[in-house]
């Protein structure tokens, strides 16, 4: 069972629709007690980094997420939810993130090109063995974002994309994952990624009970 964290940031509709179509069990909640019962957490998000961190901190959701991850619970952040996994963001003044992955969220310089990075772009696979990339290779996925992650740690890059910069597209370390693009809006490739995450969660759960 995947628990979608509802903290008032963004459109949760499409993520739920995608999981429902896949037949994945999920629930939506803003309550830590309820989310604590989930096998994995999904952190969506559209909007500004600062507002999102503020919303997460308001009721201690930030601490809850960190503790859940430390206890071994898988986590998938989507779009802004992925950016929140990192150390800090430059958006509207420097703001601390959840600090689960090394890196900083910065704005596309965008001097000679359009910002946001909006539309379909191709994945460049860095870690073909990642559980999130089963049955995927150089697929196209749908991005909408003006800020992107800069990291010195190549190990967290599962797949990138090229938009005048190397854009981390799928990131991860151990059981923490993030997708900069919108898998729920990325047609069959996106569906595959969500399915891979759900399968990973199931496998982990099975391993834990053995």
């Amino acid at each position: 069972m995947i628990g979608i964290i509802d903290y008032g940031m963004g459109n949760l509709h499409s993520v739920q629709n995608a999981l429902r179509r896949l037949g994945v069990d999920y629930f939506l909640s803003e309550k830590k007690e309820e989310l604590a019962a989930a096998d994995a957490l999904l952190l969506p998000g559209v909007g500004a980094f600062k507002d999102a961190m503020h919303a997460l901190k308001e009721n201690g959701m930030d601490t809850f997420i960190r503790e859940s991850v430390q206890a071994g619970k898988p986590l998938l952040g989507i779009c802004l939810g992925m950016q929140l996994l990192f150390e800090e963001s430059e958006e509207n003044g420097l703001t601390d993130g959840l600090n689960l992955l090394p890196g900083r969220v910065v704005r596309f310089p965008g001097i000679e090109y359009k910002v946001p990075h909006m539309g379909w772009n191709q994945l460049i696979v860095k870690q073909p063995g990642s559980p999130l990339l089963q049955n995927l290779s150089s697929d196209y996925v749908y991005f909408v974002h003006s800020y992107f992650v800069k990291t010195d740690d190549q190990n967290v890059l599962i797949a990138t994309s090229d938009y005048h910069e190397e854009v981390p597209a799928i990131v991860g370390k151990d059981h923490i994952f993030g997708a900069q693009f919108h898998p729920e809006k990325s047609s069959t490739a996106g569906v595959e990624i969500l399915k891979n995450f759900a399968n990973y969660v199931e496998r982990r759960k099975a391993d834990a009970t053995v």
């Binding site: 429902r20 179509r21 749908y142 919108h182 729920e184 809006k185 990325s186 047609s187 996106g190």
Partner: peptide, 26 residues
């Protein structure tokens, strides 16, 4: 929305913030 896994835009007769919200909510 329940069937689609690609972005979609809705227009026509959207006159207020309330209308925008309704359509996005849907």
């Amino acid at each position: 929305a329940a069937e689609l896994a690609i972005p979609f835009t809705v227009g026509g007769g959207i006159n207020s913030l309330e209308d925008i919200k309704k359509v996005l909510r849907a």
